[in-house]
Amino acid sequence: MSRTLLRSAAPALRGAIVPPSIRLATTPLLLARAFNTTAPIVEPVPPEQQQHVKNAVNPTAHHVRPLAFKKSHPAPPPAPIEDSVRNLLPFLAAQPGHYITVHIHGFPYLVQEGDEIRLPFRMPGVLPGDVLRLNRASVIGSRDYTMKGAPHIDERVFECRATVTGTESEPLRIKIKKKRRQRRARRVHSKHRYTILRISELNIKNADDVEL
């Protein structure tokens, strides 16, 4: 019923005369809509006032660009302890139960005195009973103190010796190798041997015995 009334009254409303007060009230609204739809005018900014991508002013001849992000270290880090090796080496040597990370042919091993090492290869030129001086170490420590090298520790600080106890061999392995579309098969025999070492001595020298 309401739709029928609106349709019947539509021609009359189209021809109706709108009062001037209503016309004046609607005119600024239309103008505002038309003004808002226009594209904004962007004025060029001088190069010295342009902002950097990281929200900082571009550097010029008389201006240095400030840091855009917060500094991770606002104050310089504290200076290292002078003669730390000379001051702390006696405490490290006094504590028992030392451990060391020695490097043998590029392989690191974390051991203590009395431990055994099974090298993943057969060390050439050694026999059972030989004593080896291990002079490459990256870490020496005790319960409360640790000395780290960069990359290795001076060999005058410690003495680490290992005794060759013998060699071990794995069971014989036979691997059959084939190729596609060939009736021939090849058998490869392998029996690797390993050298066994025992850490017989581990001593850390005092600062008076070492000229650092």
Score class of each variant (00 low, 15 high):
residue 1 M to C: 05
residue 2 S to V: 07
residue 3 R to H: 06
residue 4 T to V: 05
residue 4 T to C: 02
residue 5 L to H: 09
residue 9 A to P: 00
residue 10 A to D: 03
residue 16 A to W: 09
residue 18 V to A: 07
residue 21 S to N: 13
residue 21 S to F: 07
residue 22 I to Y: 08
residue 23 R to M: 13
residue 24 L to F: 11
residue 24 L to V: 05
residue 26 T to R: 07
residue 28 P to Q: 01
residue 30 L to C: 06
residue 31 L to H: 10
residue 31 L to S: 09
residue 38 T to Q: 11
residue 42 V to I: 12
residue 43 E to W: 07
residue 45 V to K: 02
residue 46 P to A: 12
residue 46 P to D: 09
residue 47 P to G: 01
residue 49 Q to F: 12
residue 50 Q to R: 14
residue 51 Q to S: 08
residue 52 H to E: 02
residue 56 A to S: 13
residue 57 V to A: 09
residue 62 H to D: 04
residue 63 H to G: 00
residue 64 V to H: 01
residue 67 L to E: 05
residue 70 K to A: 09
residue 70 K to E: 12
residue 71 K to P: 04
residue 71 K to L: 15
residue 77 P to S: 02
residue 77 P to Q: 08
residue 79 A to V: 10
residue 82 E to K: 14
residue 86 R to G: 07
residue 86 R to V: 11
residue 87 N to I: 13
residue 95 Q to K: 07
residue 99 Y to C: 02
residue 99 Y to G: 05
residue 99 Y to N: 03
residue 102 V to L: 06
residue 102 V to C: 04
residue 104 I to A: 01
residue 107 F to N: 11
residue 111 V to H: 06
residue 112 Q to F: 01
residue 114 G to R: 07
residue 116 E to P: 00
residue 117 I to V: 06
residue 118 R to E: 12
residue 120 P to F: 05
residue 124 P to F: 05
residue 125 G to N: 13
residue 130 D to V: 00
residue 131 V to F: 06
residue 132 L to E: 00
residue 133 R to S: 13
residue 134 L to T: 03
residue 134 L to M: 14
residue 136 R to Q: 12
residue 136 R to F: 03
residue 138 S to P: 00
residue 139 V to K: 10
residue 144 D to G: 02
residue 145 Y to L: 14
residue 147 M to D: 00
residue 149 G to A: 04
residue 149 G to C: 10
residue 151 P to E: 06
residue 152 H to S: 03
residue 152 H to I: 07
residue 153 I to W: 07
residue 154 D to Y: 08
residue 155 E to Q: 08
residue 159 E to S: 13
residue 159 E to M: 11
residue 163 T to G: 01
residue 169 S to E: 14
residue 170 E to V: 07
residue 173 R to L: 08
residue 176 I to M: 10
residue 176 I to S: 12
residue 178 K to L: 04
residue 179 K to L: 11
residue 179 K to F: 03
residue 181 R to K: 15
residue 183 R to E: 10
residue 183 R to H: 13
residue 184 R to A: 11
residue 188 V to F: 12
residue 191 K to Y: 01
residue 192 H to K: 15
residue 199 I to T: 00
residue 201 E to S: 14
residue 201 E to R: 14
residue 203 N to I: 13
residue 204 I to H: 01
residue 205 K to N: 10
residue 206 N to Q: 15
residue 207 A to H: 09
residue 207 A to T: 15
residue 209 D to Q: 15
residue 209 D to W: 04
residue 211 E to N: 14
